[in-house]
């Protein structure tokens, strides 16, 4: 029993210490949110939300002419059918003139 605790204790302490969430290169969201993106030049913009199977589950913006610079949009965590998505990893793809210029990753959970 003592030997088990000897190995469990450091493991549990490390888990409790955990990684620093702020260092994750993705945001963790529980409700709808607004995100920003930068366009290097003007053009036609599409915004898609993909699930972890790389399926397009929501079109946030389609064939929208936008100027260069910073823009924002929002996602209410719902799919194309209006149903809240299940917990998991989701990716927002910013497409300018049919080229993916940015991918943002979000961890969605209840």
């Amino acid at each position: 029993m003592g030997k088990i605790l000897m190995f469990l204790l450091p493991a549990l302490l490390l888990i409790s210490a955990g990684c620093n969430d702020s260092t994750y290169p993705f945001d963790q969201v529980t409700e709808g949110f607004t995100f920003t993106y930068d366009l290097p030049n003007e053009g036609v913009v599409d915004l898609f939300v993909l699930n972890c199977y790389m399926n397009n589950i929501r079109i946030l913006l389609a064939d929208s002419a936008q100027s260069s610079g910073s823009h924002s949009s929002s996602w209410d965590l719902r799919n194309e059918s209006g149903v809240r998505v299940t917990d998991g990893l989701y990716y927002i793809r910013i497409i300018l003139d049919e080229n993916v210029i940015e991918t943002q990753m979000y961890e969605v959970y209840q």
């Binding site: 990684c19 969430d21 994750y24 963790q28 972890c52 299940t86 917990d87 998991g88 990893l89 961890e107 969605v108 959970y109």
Partner: peptide
């Protein structure tokens, strides 16, 4: 596929 708060 596991992430800190989700499992798919």
């Amino acid at each position: 596929l596991d992430s800190p708060n989700t499992a798919t």
